[in-house]
Simulated scan of single mutants.
Amino acid sequence: MATVTTSDGVNLFYKDWGPKDAQPVMFHHGWPLSSDDWDNQMLFFQSQGYRVIAHDRRGHGRSDQIDAGNDMDTYATDVAAIVEALDLQDVVHVGHSTGGGEVARYAARAARGRVAKVVLISAVPPVMIRSERNPDGVPADVFDGFRAALTTNRAQFFLDVPSGPFYGFNRDGAAVSQGLVKNWWRQGMAGSAKAHFDCIAAFSETDFTDDLVALTMPVLFLHGEDDQVVPISNSAHKAIKLVRNGTLKTYPGLSHGLFSTHPDVVNPDLLAFVR
């Protein structure tokens, strides 16, 4: 397997497809998944002549199941390690959900010339959890429920999430794909329960406001209007107001996992922005 070793000794698995002299598009997965969640988009962009890269976040997928560093600062540092090891320049970074937070934190700190554009899909910024500063955020007991379900029966929890709100399969008339449900479960169960537990705090409690303000490159926000996991009113509608050069595109009726359920809709919009 292709891996990059971080400064604290963690081996991060990554995929790197396509011409090495083509513009790179790097994909960042959501919780608790892996780089496999981007298979459709990686094949699509490679067919369009791009170099495509995706990695398994530490503790996820095929990367080391380390019990430390499951926080956004370390995730961003890990991204930088892969970018530097592969010497990637002018990269378009595409992040989904937790991966969107990872992208925002990395891109705000990246060295000049490393980042060309940013795409945040159903992403957690600016901050998910309810607080005095974010009174309309998601209540803390929702995330406590995630922790309890993960601790009690992670295997069942990782069936319930994709069978329900993640893909909107709990909606009346939804076209349920058991393949997507099983693939979500497969990816999740390959990772570390400790990393998944710790990452709940990372994606729900991290405040990305300053990161969004610091972004100077073009930023595209894509978000389903029926996102039950990262509600659009608490994320994209707020985040677009914080960036300097942002575009927001929303999709009526689509879910948190919209790029998996509707790649035929999302991929052309991604390609138009990347070009």
Rank of each mutant, 00 (worst) to 15 (best):
Y14S: 13
P165G: 11
N134W: 04
R275K: 15
D227P: 06
V25D: 04
D141R: 13
A22S: 11
G30A: 06
G59R: 01
M42H: 01
A201Y: 02
G253M: 05
V103G: 07
H55V: 01
N267V: 07
G101P: 01
L120Y: 02
M1L: 10
E84D: 15
T5K: 15
V119L: 05
V124Y: 00
T247D: 13
Y251E: 13
I129M: 14
F203G: 10
A202I: 05
S7E: 14
V91A: 13
G224Q: 00
V103S: 06
R57H: 12
R114E: 15
R51E: 13
T250Y: 11
G9D: 08
F197Y: 15
Y167D: 09
A107L: 11
D227Y: 03
R133G: 15
A236S: 15
N134L: 07
P252W: 02
I129F: 03
D172Y: 03
G113R: 00
P126D: 04
F157R: 04
Q23F: 02
F27E: 04
A76Y: 00
R112K: 15
A108G: 13
L12E: 01
M42E: 14
L212M: 12
A195C: 11
S192W: 01
D264W: 02
A22Y: 06
I240R: 08
Y106L: 12
D226V: 00
L120K: 02
F259D: 04
W38S: 07
S97V: 08
S177G: 11
T5P: 07
R58A: 11
P126F: 05
Q23C: 09
H96V: 03
Q187C: 11
S260T: 07
A175V: 14
S97Y: 05
G61M: 09
V118H: 08
R244W: 05
T3F: 14
I129S: 06
F273I: 09
